[in-house]
Design a protein around this nucleic acid. Structure first.
Length: 259
DNA sequence: ATGTCGCATTCCATGCGA
């Protein structure tokens, strides 16, 4: 089974690329982030016509997540538990068939948190604490679990072309990295890091300052696996070439293969 | 490099979020 995640930076702007990627990569499921539209404005008909089931959790203008899948997503949860007052659409979870069993899959758009001297940063850290509490509960179910998305976290210096440029950024502050480690320490595996120690593997290149042309990237899109999913991991791919397409997202898809 | 996108609106210019 192939599971991918991609921050598309507006699904309506990226519909052509999205359909191209689905045809090319043939995933069984694709988690989307930053769809940037209401559920009613999602280009559902075009995607369903290509043979996909669609579940969305959108909002006007910003954020918004979705899961596309060949099989129908069951047991769907919209929104991250732990704060009823949080109106931002950043979490969507459901269950898909995997062999004779199931896999639980979440599409995650973790808050950016910049600038750190504003209320945005404590919101990010609070969201990470809520995600950790929810993941802890899910892990107790001892099933294949994939938490996929744009984490807005650079885990380590080797995950940035120029780590020094990020030392004061919410994506790389020590508290951010510690919170990400705390999530992993529950017993989750960073899929890419379980297959390679190499640096220079990025998933995001800023639109500004020729970041793509200079390969000035960072790795912030991650798939975190429960032990039952990690045991079945057969490969990880970053679809870097997608960043070279015309009018691309600033993120590229990341995909895992589960046996 | 203060270098780009996408959204929204009071709309052809500007502010916000990233």
């Amino acid at each position: 089974m192939r599971i991918a995640t991609w921050n598309v930076n507006s699904v309506r702007q990226r519909l052509g690329h999205l359909l191209d990627f689905l045809r090319e990569a043939e995933p069984d499921a694709l988690c989307l982030q930053e769809i940037k539209c209401l559920d009613t404005d999602f280009p559902r008909a075009e995607i369903e016509a290509a043979g996909w089931q669609v579940e969305t959790h959108g909002q006007k203008t910003f954020n918004g997540v979705a899961i596309l899948s060949r099989s129908k997503l069951e047991d769907v949860r919209r929104g991250l538990p732990g704060d009823e007052a949080d109106a931002q659409a950043r979490y969507l979870e459901g269950v898909l068939p995997l062999g004779p069993g199931i896999v639980r899959l979440a599409s995650i758009y973790l808050p950016n948190g910049n600038p750190p001297n504003t209320e945005k940063y404590p919101y990010k850290l609070g969201w990470m604490a809520r995600l950790t509490a929810h993941a802890d509960m899910l892990l107790k179910q001892e099933e294949p679990l994939v938490l996929a998305g744009d984490y807005n976290v650079i885990p380590e210096p080797r995950d940035a072309r120029d780590p020094g440029a990020w030392v004061s950024d919410a994506l790389f502050l020590p508290q951010t990295r510690a919170a990400f480690r705390a999530l992993l320490d529950l017993g989750l595996t960073d899929a890419l890091r379980s297959t390679t120690d190499a640096g220079g593997l990025y998933t995001f290149w800023d639109y500004q300052a020729g970041a793509w042309q200079r390969n000035n990237g960072i790795r912030i899109d991650h798939l975190l696996l429960s032990p039952q999913a990690a045991d079945r991991l057969a490969g990880v791919q970053i679809a870097k070439h997608v960043r070279g397409w015309d009018k691309p997202s600033d993120h590229v898809p990341v995909m895992i293969e589960l046996t």
